[in-house]
């Protein structure tokens, strides 16, 4: 708990944490919090703060198929939390492993992996997604694959840079002299030293991934309907946004507050980490 104190003193961390963990909580408690089934058609295009003809109360109104927007937002939180976390984690597993190997091995292995990473990174992110989705189709698993494929190289670069730095320190040399196995050195000696910068990157990347999943949904290339998905809700409601702005405004507020929370959290973590380093 004591280790958390410097973080909790930062207003940025508090606000960011409140937003991010708030959405996490909403995602977990979705079955309890959502007033209606997100897929059930009740009454189409009811404006926010209205009571429906059967006595239901619609805080945020309903969409063109008569589904309660509040319930869809709450379940949409679960969708984005699950898929963004899953995609970011798989990207991390790949990026971390290859980054550690490239940074530690150096030489030709490093050169080849770096070249490959650069090739993937020279695609504008969205172009890469579009190409992948065209080839493998839009399904939940494929979206995770697409995000993993395009985020892993960026994580790889960060981990590789830190590994090169850490590997040159004395305790790693000592471990080599002691005859520790390479895997032990990589995962027990080097990996724990990368957590500071990676925690910051993880928050940021989680936010990017949420943005990406939202953007794919907005473009109609995301999770197939009727999955409650914030980006998809904007896409579906766009045609009627003039008469019924609530169709698009609430999902946009939802995704913006989530990503804002994550970047504030990342910012706060970075400031505390920097201050720690200056002290050390």
């Amino acid at each position: 708990m004591k280790a958390l104190t410097p973080y909790l003193q930062k207003p940025l961390v508090l606000i960011g944490g409140f937003l991010a963990f708030g959405w996490l909580l909403v995602a977990i408690l979705a079955p309890v919090l959502a007033p209606y089934n997100p897929l059930q058609t009740l009454q189409p295009l009811v404006k926010p703060l209205t009571t429906g003809s059967n006595g239901e109360y619609f805080l945020l109104g309903t969409d063109m198929l008569g589904r309660d927007i509040l319930s869809r937002l709450i379940w949409g939180a679960q969708t984005v939390v699950i898929y963004a976390t899953l995609a970011t984690l798989t990207a991390y597993i790949l990026g971390l492993s290859f980054g550690l190997i490239a940074g530690y091995a150096g030489g030709r292995t490093d050169a080849v992996l770096c070249f490959l990473a650069n090739v993937i990174l020279s695609f504008p992110v969205l172009v890469l997604y579009i190409v992948i989705i065209v080839v493998i189709g839009a399904s939940p698993v494929n979206i995770v694959i697409a995000v993993t494929f395009s985020s892993a190289p960026a994580i790889f670069r960060i981990v590789r840079a830190i590994t090169i730095d850490v590997a040159s320190r004395d305790f790693v040399k000592a471990a080599i002299t002691q005859g520790e196995s390479t895997w032990r050195i990589l995962f027990i000696d080097i990996l724990p030293n990368t957590t500071g910068p990676l925690a910051v990157d993880f928050c940021l990347r989680l936010g990017y991934t949420a943005i990406t999943i939202g953007t794919l949904g907005f473009l109609g290339l995301g999770l197939p309907p009727p999955t409650p998905d914030w980006g998809g809700m904007v896409n579906e409601g766009r045609a009627m946004a003039i008469a019924f702005p609530h169709l698009v405004v609430f999902p946009c507020i939802a995704i913006s507050t989530l990503t804002l929370g994550l970047s504030l959290l990342a910012d706060g973590l970075r400031e505390v980490n920097d201050a720690k380093e200056r002290q050390a």
């Binding site: 953007t215 804002l260 994550l262």
Partner: peptide, 9 residues
């Protein structure tokens, strides 16, 4: 932090 499509909205 705000996605392009949200700021467009």
């Amino acid at each position: 932090s705000i996605p392009d499509f949200a700021s467009a909205v």
